[in-house]
Design a protein around this nucleic acid. Sequence first.
DNA 1: AAGGTAGGTGTACGCCGTACACCCGTCAAG
DNA 2: CTTGACGGGTGTACGGCGTACACCTACCTT
Lengths: 232, 232
Amino acid sequence: METTTQAGSPAQPRAPLSKERVLSAAVALADEGGVDALSMRKIAQALGVVPMALYKHVANKNELLDGMIDVLVGEIDPPAGNTDWKTAIRRRVLSARRMLLRHTWATEVIESRMKARATPTPAVMEYLDSMIGIFRAGGFSVDLVHHAMHVMGSRLLGFSQELFEDSSGREPDPDAMPPEEMAARFPHITELAMAVAHDPDSVVGSGCDDQFEFEFALDLTLDGLERLLRRN
Amino acid sequence: METTTQAGSPAQPRAPLSKERVLSAAVALADEGGVDALSMRKIAQALGVVPMALYKHVANKNELLDGMIDVLVGEIDPPAGNTDWKTAIRRRVLSARRMLLRHTWATEVIESRMKARATPTPAVMEYLDSMIGIFRAGGFSVDLVHHAMHVMGSRLLGFSQELFEDSSGREPDPDAMPPEEMAARFPHITELAMAVAHDPDSVVGSGCDDQFEFEFALDLTLDGLERLLRRN
DNA sequence: AAGGTAGGTGTACGCCGTACACCCGTCAAG
DNA sequence: CTTGACGGGTGTACGGCGTACACCTACCTT
């Protein structure tokens, strides 16, 4: 059994590794067996490769987890044009939910990674940005969108809460984005951040009163329940 | 420096271990350094004891995590009597939030443990039960409470979502509670469960339409936002 | 032909959870 | 007073984990 590369061999012994192949193997492994069953060694084994080979494609396990989150976010349907904000948001959230149900480990990983990172990955940022865009296009003021994002909270995936939290004392982002590119790629996030904190440098800084936002969302919910109650 | 037990020594060399001491040491360690920095070995070291000593007080690390959750739930203020349901719920939720802010690792642990266990620990059950009780006392019908619990969702700690999910294929609960005791200790949960599924045996079984509940909560939120928008 | 580089390999280290055998102080029964 | 059970702390050891580091080997460029 010669397994070394042989020129004319019709069935090549192994496809070449790549970040995508590593990530989808990882996602597949997590789907069956949960995130506890996910180890670099198991992923390598599933790919027929030695564990350290993975490190040529992902820096470490945390980056791998971040990459997996991006894969998941990519599974969420893009925003549907030609509808009012309400159905657009509704569809998007329900699509996100379907993704979360497909990958039961997702919320756990998202939760823990969002706590650790200074900034969400670009894919996540893009998702949030387009979400904000839908609200803005629907006529929401910047302030109201801000509230809305907090209110949606965990239903928007579970991370908007953390997104707005103080980001100091976290793992420093290895390749933090310069503010100009930030503004160009995520216009809505930038707009919101500038309105919230009058300090455009700390783009998603802690210029917002978390406690106020929490109570705002809570009261909105309680009022909704009360209305239902009155209507008996 | 003789550290072995010596009869008349006024300062006894070490307090005797106990489950509470282990748990509070674990909570303290998690508070400073997050849940990743929490290992049986570190806890033991903090208590001046050999790692295996802990296993005389907790069965394994998962049970330790469950115990830690109970400690946290115990920090939530008990329900305030003599008020309407709305302020009672409000106070309770805000108290829970203060606890979560004190222990930033809490949501992560709760999230992962709730996914794994068949039934929440008694302390958690008690918390949920009293929460339901407040709604019921406020005049909510059983059905409406059911909706309400889903709506509050993560704001009620983050676990009611999982509580109502299908509980098959999870770690079997070592000491599952007999239904009678269940009904006696958690009357409100039982009432709700019986109404939802007409099968009183699978007390928090999957007799509820998760998708419906999710959309119900989503729409309640969206309607709330819409009202704010109209009032511009 | 020379040499850089991208990608897979092998070994090794320190951490983890915990199974298992042990040991010792206390206390009840004989 | 002896004995033996037992609750609780100990020591050793195993298998799995993430990953640092040195290597080797094809290939591509010049």
